[in-house]
Amino acid sequence: MLDFTSEQLERYSRHILLQDVGVEGQEKLLEGKVLIVGAGGLGCPIGLYLAAAGVGTIGIVDCDTVDISNLQRQIAHYTADIGRAKVESAKEKMLAINPGVTVRTYQEYLSAENIRAIIRDYDFVVDGTDNFPTKFLVNDACGMEGIPFSHGGILRFDGQTMTVLPGESACYRCVFREPPPPDAVPTCSQAGVLGAIAGMLGTIQAAEALKFLTGAGSLLTDTLLTFNAKNMDFRKIRLTRQKDCPLCGENPTISELSDNVRPACGLQEKSVRQACDAGH
């Protein structure tokens, strides 16, 4: 058993008091390793809450720099951070909340070449990306490596999330077979997004990561949770693993990762990079 310092006992007291977390659960958090893909609208609250919770090792991947148009929802980035790498800006705030955790930054774009080596070292992956090709890449790579992950997407007033235990529960491709054509889905910069829903969805994903690490409760597996913040409708859609899923079905056709069509890092056309998951 870990020896908690008295400062740690105070810091994590509200977790330790929970019957379903307790001393053992907090130890699991401190020993846990979570990778956050994206340091944007979802990645910011996810990173802040996981750091606050004492998740021992948190990786965060994002190739972008902070832009003034991010600040309406990307809550870890401040006005003074404009122009800084998002991963560095997020890391600074996470460590300011909790200097006791380790934050590893990856200022690069996740690709078919690098993703498996990066995620392999983590217990759980949280997808907070804003584009379909990366969401499929995360799903496929986590499936191949057997790493549980949380999918999340937001657009306008809508959010959706599901948790995937590869080989056990329905994967993203069981539900959404292929990335939509690049022009089929409006981008965040075109369609807009209500800032606070990034926090609504990101904190749900953070809670899933904490539940996974501690074993508390039951995960959003075989379930797509969607909400519309205009009228605050929340819906749970039951999912089942599909025998003909190209990734986790009986005769999988995906045996190698591909990048599909993906935006390049540093590209000027922000509308391409900021394409959000419409979730439908």
């Binding site: 908690f4 006992l9 007291s13 330790i16 008091l17 307790g22 001393v23």
Partner: peptide, 8 residues
Amino acid sequence: MNLVYAKV
């Protein structure tokens, strides 16, 4: 905190 210590 007394309960926290008890649980520890």
